[in-house]
Simulated assay, not measured.
Amino acid sequence: MTDAAAIDRFLEMMAAERGASRNTLAAYRRDLEQAAASMNGAIEAADVADLRQLMAGYQSLATSSAARKLSALRQFYAFLLDEGDRADNPALDIARPTTRRPLPRILTHDHVEHLFAQAEQEAAGEVPPAAAVRMLLLLELLYGSGLRASELVSLPRRAIAGEHEFLIIRGKGDKERLVPLSDRARRVLARWMPLIAEGAIWLFPSGRSHISRVRLFQMLRDLAARAGVDPTAVSPHVLRHAFATHLLEGGADLRALQLMLGHADIATTEIYTHVDSRRLVELVNRRHPLARMADVDAPAPSS
């Protein structure tokens, strides 16, 4: 059977049995025909060495593109294996190109201090504007509790649990988690609660619903401009990243951070381990059991 015939049969199966879309089928055909051309029409009989050489030629491509091409090959050979046309799937022995997660943008401690100084100044006084108290509380919850923008703006009043020590957050996948409230946030919350209209459902009401994510984004950037911080560097997501990074810098446990952020997979949380490498070296030198053992190579102190 020629490569062209094998590819046609594979695509027919993908359309009939798996309901692959027209775009998906076109992408598979393009990837497989390019692979066949690179191997001089010997894709059906290719071995692991052939595929490694093929994938080496994809190094100039984006990682996602190379990964897609390997996926097409794996499914193609799985089809040939099921059909009895091959005894193995050589593509399974090829490592999938890994997509490196981009490091999140974060704010420095100085930037955060400028934002809080401005928000606290605007919310100061015996009768501060309600909008200023709200902005300060929003900032406290973004940076102090690491909430997602969507979670924050849609907080119902009943989300406050216990003695105002926790928030009950309904996050991605409709999963609930408890997020601790800092003492600072609790004090601002106590100032904000009397300013909410009686009977309001939301913690941050606006009209018939709650403030929107877009409005939160705008409010943060306006605050940043007033605080002398580059507005383009500030967003709810950036403050969430700052919460996570600064907490890790302070010695927080990665597992505890995963629970607070509501990450289903700790691999997502591990992106925050990009903290200052010098600090990590200092941490090992100070906290590792070996740090408390005598250095056998160290010169003896002179008398």
Rank of each mutant, 00 (worst) to 15 (best):
I160S: 02
V214A: 08
G173K: 09
E198V: 07
V153E: 08
L152C: 11
I196N: 11
G173A: 08
A159P: 12
G144A: 03
F217D: 03
L136N: 00
A197W: 00
R215L: 06
A200Y: 00
L137G: 02
I201G: 01
G199L: 03
I201M: 03
E126C: 09
V188H: 03
H210Q: 13
E140M: 06
A119N: 08
A161E: 15
L189A: 07
M135D: 14
S206C: 14
G207N: 14
R226Y: 12
G162Q: 01
Q218I: 00
K175P: 00
L220R: 04
S150P: 06
P129N: 09
A131W: 15
R221T: 04
L141G: 02
V127W: 09
L223F: 10
G171P: 05
V127Y: 09
M193D: 08
S150F: 13
R170T: 13
Q118R: 14
P194H: 15
M135Y: 03
A225F: 13
L203D: 02
F204N: 05
D222S: 14
Q118F: 07
K175F: 05
E163Q: 05
R157H: 11
G125C: 10
G228Q: 10
A131P: 14
E151R: 04
I169P: 03
I201C: 01
E120M: 11
G207L: 14
Y143F: 09
R221P: 04
R158V: 05
R213Q: 07
F204Q: 06
L223D: 02
W192N: 10
E140Q: 10
A123I: 10
G144T: 01
G199F: 00
A117F: 06
S209H: 15
S145I: 01
R208L: 06
A132P: 12
E151W: 11
L167D: 09
L167Y: 14
A185H: 04
R177L: 08
A124F: 15
L147Y: 13
L139W: 03
L216A: 00
L136M: 01
L137V: 05
P180M: 02
R157K: 14
W192F: 15
Q121I: 07
G144Q: 01
K172C: 10
L223A: 06
R191Y: 04
P194L: 12
G171E: 07
R215Q: 08
L167F: 15
R158S: 10
L223P: 04
L138P: 13
R226M: 12
L220A: 05
R213P: 00
